[in-house]
Simulated scan of single mutants.
Amino acid sequence: MRVPSRSPGQRPVPSIPTSAPTRRAPAGPSRRLASVEPDLDAYRAAVADLLVEVGALASAASTAARQVLVDQRLREPAIAAVLDATPQGLVGARETLLLEMARYQPDERRPVSDLTALVRIYLLSRIDVMWWRDAPAYRTDEQVSGSADLVDLEWLRRRDLLRFRYQEQPTTLLGRGARALRRRVRPSVAPHTSGLLFCRARREMVALLNDVGREFTAHAPPGTPPLWVTSLVRSAEHQHRLRWLGYAAWLPSGHCLGWAADVEMAWFNRFGARDTLAELLLARQRAGEVNVVDEGQAWHLCLAPESRGRLRRVYEAEMAV
C-alpha cells in the first residue's frame, strides 16, 4: 500500500518538475520559535514505520498488542511533537485514535476498509490540524453557504476560470438515479463519487487546484481528463453526517476550516495517469506547500499556512480582481 508520507531520504526525487515554491519560514508571528517547530519529515517517517507494525498486528487476536504498540509509538518524540501541537494535545489525540481503533469493525463496503488506513489517515491529517490550530471552523451548513471568505465555483466554472473538474452532489432521488445510470453506461466520464455538497471554496484553494490542474494536464498522457476534485469545504455538521456513513471524518478537520481538498486518484488508473498525479502531489508536499494523505480512492490535500499569501496573490492575478 502506498503511503504518501515518507521522508525525502526514503523516496526518490520525482522526475516531474513542480512549480511549487521551496519551503520558507512563515512571514507572520508563530506561537513557537521556528527552531522548535515539529520535524514533519521525521513525523511522516515515524508514522510510515508505525503503519508497517500495525499491519503486522491486523488480526483480531492481536487487538491488545496493537493497542499497546500504538500507545507506545505515539509517545515517541517525532510523533508526540506534532500531536502535542494540535488543539487536542498528545493525550487527546492518543485517546481518540485508540478509541477509534477499538470501535473499528472490518467491512469492505466502508470507505475506510482496513485498520491500517484508519491509523494512517488520522495521524497524517493531524498535520493539517496543527497548521491551522487557531483557525475557526465552519460549524453549520448555513455558515458555509453564507461565508464571504468562500467563492462560488459555479460562477468561476461558467467563465472557464477553473482548471479542474467536480460535480455537484444530487439532492433528489431522481438526480441520484440519473447519476447511477450514467456511471453504468459511461464509467469513464466521471469518477465514482457523490460530489460536492457545497460548490464553494477559499480563493487560495482555487489557485492551488488550478495550479495543480495545469501541471497535471501538461504531464499526464494524452487523452487524460483534467484533475477531478471530490471534496472541498465542509461544515462540522456535514462532517458528522459523513462519519455516520463510515467515512474517516474527524473533528477538527482541514475541510471544516476551508483549507483542505480531496482529489480523485483511483479513476486515473484507467488513463495511466495516477502515478503522474501522485508524483506531482508528493513533490508539492516535499516543497512544503501542502500536506498529502493517501485515503485510497482519493488523496487529501491541505494547504500550508506559509503558502496562503502567495496563492491569494495568484488568485487575484488570475481572476483580475
Rank of each mutant, 00 (worst) to 15 (best):
R313V: 02
S7R: 06
T276C: 13
A48Q: 01
G92H: 12
V185C: 04
P38A: 07
P12N: 10
P191V: 14
P29L: 09
V263S: 07
A135M: 12
A81D: 14
E76W: 07
D49P: 01
Y166K: 06
S147K: 10
E289A: 08
T230K: 03
P187Y: 10
A148C: 02
R182H: 03
A207E: 07
R157G: 02
P14Q: 10
R11L: 13
V206K: 05
L40V: 04
P226Q: 07
L301R: 01
Q143E: 15
V290D: 05
R234G: 06
Q239A: 15
Y166N: 07
R284E: 11
A278F: 14
A64S: 09
R163P: 00
L57V: 05
A201R: 08
E306W: 04
E100S: 09
N210Y: 07
W299M: 15
G223Q: 11
C256V: 15
A248Q: 11
R274D: 05
A148H: 09
L69K: 13
R186Y: 08
L281D: 03
D114Y: 09
W155E: 10
R243V: 00
T217L: 10
L257A: 03
R6T: 00
A261T: 04
S30R: 11
L97H: 08
V91M: 11
Q10H: 14
S62H: 12
W267S: 07
I79Q: 08
R184Y: 09
A42M: 00
D107V: 04
N210I: 08
Q239M: 15
Y104S: 00
G9E: 09
G195P: 08
A249K: 12
T171S: 13
A46T: 01
R308D: 00
V3W: 14
V119C: 08
P29W: 12
T86P: 01
G146D: 05
P17V: 08
P226A: 15
S62C: 14
A27M: 10
L281N: 01
L97Q: 05
W299P: 00
S5R: 13
H300I: 10
L242P: 00
R11A: 02
P170C: 15
P305M: 06
G254R: 12
R133Q: 05
W267C: 03
S15I: 01
L51N: 01
S235T: 06
R31S: 07
T193V: 15
L51M: 12
E142T: 10
S35P: 00
H240G: 14
S59W: 05
T276I: 15
C256A: 15
S307W: 11
